[in-house]
């Protein structure tokens, strides 16, 4: 792992175990947002873009791309702590979210290590309307110097 944080550096002020990251909402993801993501990502699966295709599969509307929602975790984490490097992000998609809906991200610190380099494990959730769990995720984040500490 190449970050600016090397063993022996002074540990930054990282949050304690159990610390909750302030929740934040993303979306709603309307059809235009899904089209924009389809172009940007190349994932032009009509399941996400065409209500008739979604209906043929028994869905009430087009589901939001899972990776579009997963992409929200990076700005969520980095707006909370810009001095972190996301070394790992893994997730399971639990339930679909449909066009026009948004998600609420939340998270907490479930593990903290100060050596050999400062690292946190974050448990993350995306929930849809009615508090429906949409994504459960885990991130390993490393502290890296932003140059603003000294």
């Amino acid at each position: 792992m190449k970050t600016d944080a090397e063993p022996g550096m002074d540990a930054p002020c990282l949050p304690e175990l159990g610390h909750k990251i302030p929740a934040r909402e993303f979306g709603p993801f309307d059809r235009r947002a899904l089209e924009r993501y389809a172009i940007a990502s190349g994932d032009d699966n009509p399941l996400h873009l065409d209500p008739e295709v979604a209906a043929a599969l028994g869905l009430p509307d087009t589901p939001v791309h899972g990776l579009l929602m997963l992409s929200c975790f990076e700005p969520y984490i980095l707006e909370w702590r810009p001095d972190l490097f996301i070394a790992r992000l893994s997730c399971k998609f639990l339930n679909p979210l449909f066009a026009g809906e948004g998600i609420r991200l939340s998270g907490r610190v479930v593990s903290r290590k100060d050596t050999p380099r400062p690292e946190l494990i974050l448990r993350l959730f995306a929930r849809g309307s009615g508090d429906t769990p949409v994504i459960v995720a885990e991130a390993a984040v490393l502290w890296q110097s932003t140059g603003a500490e000294s």
Binding site: L67, L68, E74
Partner: peptide, 22 residues
């Protein structure tokens, strides 16, 4: 722009490589 990322960060989003799956 499509993923709620913050353009001022000037970094490659961690999910960007999914483009290559397409």
């Amino acid at each position: 722009r499509a993923t709620s990322g913050h353009p001022k960060h000037h970094r490659v989003p961690i999910t960007f490589p999914v483009r290559w799956l397409a």
